[in-house]
Amino acid sequence: MKIFVCVKQVPDAKDVRLDPKTNTLAREGVQSIMNPYDRHALEEAVRLKEQHGGTVTVISMGPPQAEATLREAISCGADEMALVSDRAFAGADTWATTYTLSMAIKKLGGADLIICGKQAIDGDTAQVGPGLAERMGMPYLTCVRKVVSVAGQVIRLERMMDDGYDLVEAELPMLFTVVKEINEPRIPSLKGKMKAKKQELVMLSAADIGADPDLLGLKGSPTQVVNVFPPEMRGERCLLEGTADEQVAQLATKLEAIL
């Protein structure tokens, strides 16, 4: 089974915020990390490989620095890695991103199974998985919490719904996205770390993947960001005063109308 895992290098979202006064981004000390959901996607791919054989290739579209994230993925059990990187990709929204990733995966010989994290924590769109599947002509399932079985080409999965879950069946080749509940990602092994140091990185440019330049980056993106601003706060900040007993009594009175 040839498995591809899409990974993204992201800023650690909890550290990213806009300064409300200057509307600039406070980025001191913001670390670049592997998108947390992608760790679970990678872990599931490695487990499937261990049980059913095959290879796991991690692929990322991003700047050259994303190599670090790919090497980390190798240390956690991936076999091969490819970085799709080109200035022409700048400004890509999910539509252009899925086009780029699909062209790269096709260039690398295609996949039997593609696993993605549910969403990336910087954009939070959850759109790349479904969009990539469509471009690959594959069926897909989002928010998978459990791989129930793999028998030949038939895979059974549980996908989370808002009111429970669905047990579903699909045939390979297919794509699914995972939620964190699916597994507990392993920490890199010593052997993995050694491999990560030596593993050859496959670099792919826009020309390498045979992409139509009109469909890349900003030019190929139907959406455009026109404004970025900090979220508004309610700004009420009414603190009750006194001892615990006094505060509780005041609150109980104020809540009478509601309860």
Partner: peptide, 8 residues
């Protein structure tokens, strides 16, 4: 960015 930023 996890709600730290709003984008239009």
């Amino acid at each position: 960015f996890g709600g730290n930023i709003m984008a239009t």
